[in-house]
């Protein structure tokens, strides 16, 4: 089970790899779209990579609720196996 800090770090790595976001910019209060400038197609990739990394399923219906990094961390934390 990954801790919140580990999930943030993992997401930061994914966002850096897939969308060119600086790891240091990835903090829980940031929004993916406005603050980190992740476009909608790249967001799909980020979710796919997060599923693989953390062993969770993030349904499409849930994706639209994940506005901030913290939202994603909370979902992953609650649903990881």
């Amino acid at each position: 089970m990954a801790s919140r800090e580990e999930i943030v770090t993992g997401l930061a790595d994914i966002l850096n790899e897939l969308a060119g976001v600086e790891q240091a910019d990835v903090t829980e209060e940031k929004t993916f779209t406005d603050d980190l400038d992740v476009d909608s197609l790249s967001m799909v990739e980020v979710i796919m990579a997060a599923e693989d990394k953390f062993g969770v399923k993030i349904p499409d219906t849930e994706m639209q609720n994940l506005k901030t990094v913290g939202d994603a961390v909370s979902y992953i934390e609650a649903n990881q196996k």
Binding site: L18, G20, L41
Partner: peptide
């Protein structure tokens, strides 16, 4: 071209 852009 920077890698994140090139991937797309």
């Amino acid at each position: 071209i920077e890698k994140p852009k090139l991937r797309k």
